[in-house]
Design a protein around this nucleic acid. Structure first.
Length: 494
RNA sequence: GCCCCCAUCGUCUAGCGGCCCAGGACGUGGCCCUCUCAAGGCCAAAACAAGGAUUCGAAUUCCUUUGGGGGCACCA
């Protein structure tokens, strides 16, 4: 498909009515990838024509979300561009003008029906088990009557004059031709009585004026695709390439995530809201990788992708039209992969806030040293605190029972601790290369198992049953503190 | 109710008429490595929704059924 290799102008057009979620993130990602792959532009357009549903802060959240994910836009609010303004609330007059054009060309008409009458009609239709429909009362009003009623101050809307007979066929890139019977079409409202355009008009006008080549959006728009196509045709515009992505299903695969369920996820350390991922310890690289693969694939075995990889390899032909269930365990997997792909310096910087949030004041040099031993143990960044908090602790806490391993007595444990103290005191500086052979030699002679000896030391030094490797940890903690902690353990047993 | 879309292991998916008694990944189980936990390596179990049709040959094409999803606003 050669259209992929011509510069694409693609737009991400969210409405600021709620939190940015995974579905939006994926759409924006694909937009970005297509634009960058083809050397085109990625445009952010805010669809805020509905004042009632406006959520303060949503636009900012959207922009921050994109920034966090690393998908920067070329044109949009705060950035400008040759086709602005990029907020629909600033484009009211434009839509009015194009609405009028449609009326003049006979593709739309003024409708004076009141909302009350409309809902009455709808009720009756439903009672008769008919699909709810505009009944066409104002479809063929005379010019004189229209002028008179407008002059009379009657409220009106602009409706699209949808064809009543025949069929309409539109092509969606991943689904092929979609054909509907025109009699199932409705005369949708294009401009409300308050003068604001509805999505159907506004989006089509903007896509045209902004020279959008590909419309990538959710499949909830599929039912109104014929309408949108018809509007473009009424204007005589060339249609963009239509791409409707399927929705994300809840992890069980049974249905879409409800508001309630989305909010509840956070209890399990998950979320579908982009704003939450950072705090939950996810790195944007992983979220991008994960979400890219829900609905797109490269081949039958490659799964690790950076954003740059994706720009290189993304293509429209491997998009998948079927709905995908969200799989958070796979996100954890990707998160681990990308954490391990980070430099020590980078990882040190990223885990710092998690330590700080727990009241630690981590030293950068120590963070740099623990980064490599933490790397392959982290599913999420916040795991690092639980695993490595002891590095920043003055002393460690544990119970006597924890110190004495199963199968050993208090006395034996004390012997091991005292011997270890002696050995570790004998080396000038604690380094893995130096003390590990000495300790292993002791294990060998003592008749205890490595697991027993190192297990006791692990508790004494880290206060934890599970920790990063012992000798590496001791090296980082330093001789003085290690000896201090072992000494403290011996005292506990006395 | 009506309209539209979708259908391969539990999940994400590869597959675009013979390379497939279906490949990869996550997860699960086992083994190896091992100072704990991981990471890593190896192995295993696990799917073409059902029924027709076309064809020498179908997971791949067509039809029906079933299941799932979306939509039917002066929301987007």
């Amino acid at each position: 498909m050669n259209q992929e290799f011509t510069p694409a102008r693609v737009r991400f057009a969210p409405s600021p009515t709620g939190h940015m979620h995974l579905g939006s993130a994926r759409t924006a990602l694909y937009d970005y990838l297509l634009a960058h792959k083809t050397g085109g532009q990625f445009i952010l357009r805010i669809e805020d024509t509905d004042v009632k549903r406006y959520m303060p802060g949503a636009e900012e959240e959207l922009i921050n979300g994109l920034k966090w994910l690393g998908i920067d836009y070329d044109e949009g609010p705060g950035k400008g561009g040759p086709y602005g303004p990029y907020r629909q609330s600033e484009r009211k007059e434009i839509y009015l003008e194009y609405g009028k054009k449609l009326v003049e060309s006979g593709n739309a008409y003024y409708c004076f029906c009141t909302p009350e009458r409309l809902s009455r009609v709808r009720e009756e239709q439903q009672k008769r088990k008919e699909p709810p429909h505009y009944d066409g009362t104002c479809r063929n009003l005379s010019r004189e009557e229209i002028e008179a009623r407008i002059k009379n101050g009657e409220k009106y809307v602009v409706r699209f004059k949808a064809p009543r007979e025949g069929t309409t066929t539109v092509t969606d890139l991943l689904r092929g031709e979609i054909t509907v019977e025109n009699r199932t079409l409705d005369d949708s409202i294009l401009i409300k009585s308050d003068g604001w355009a509805l999505y159907h008009l506004a989006a089509m006008v903007d896509d045209y004026l902004m020279k959008i080549t590909h419309v990538i959006r959710g499949s909830e728009w599929l039912p109104s695709l014929p309408l949108h196509s018809l509007i473009c045709r009424a204007f005589g515009w060339r249609e963009p390439v239509w791409i409707h992505l399927s929705v994300f299903l809840k992890p069980s695969g049974k249905g879409k995530m409800s508001k309630r369920e989305s909010a509840d996820l956070i209890k399990d350390g998950h979320s579908i809201f982009i704003k939450d991922f950072a705090d939950l310890g996810y790195v944007p690289e992983a979220v991008v990788n994960w979400v890219a693969l829900m609905g797109w694939s490269y081949d039958d075995h490659t799964e690790f992708f950076t954003l740059d990889d994706l720009v290189q390899k993304f293509d429209l032909n491997h998009l998948n039209p079927s709905p995908a269930a969200i799989n958070f365990t796979k996100l954890d997997h990707f998160n681990g992969l990308h954490i391990r792909n980070l430099s020590d310096e980078d990882l040190a910087g990223r885990i710092r806030p998690f330590f700080e949030a727990k009241g630690y004041q981590p030293d950068h040099q120590i963070l740099l040293k623990i980064a490599p031993i933490l790397k392959e143990r982290l599913a999420t960044l916040d795991d690092s605190v639980e695993l490595a908090g002891f590095f920043f602790e003055k002393d460690v806490k544990y119970s006597t029972e924890e110190l004495i391993p199963k199968g050993l007595t208090k006395e034996q444990t004390a012997v091991i601790l005292k011997e270890s103290l002696k050995i570790l005191s004998s080396v000038p500086v604690l380094t893995k290369e130096k003390d590990e052979p000495l300790m292993r030699e002791f294990v060998e002679k003592s008749g205890f198992s490595a697991g027993q000896v190192f297990g006791i030391l692990r508790i004494a030094v880290t206060g934890q049953r599970v920790s990063p490797p012992l000798f590496e940890s001791m090296e980082i903690i330093g001789k003085d503190k290690v000896l201090e902690r072992i000494d403290a353990a011996i005292k506990i047993l006395d």
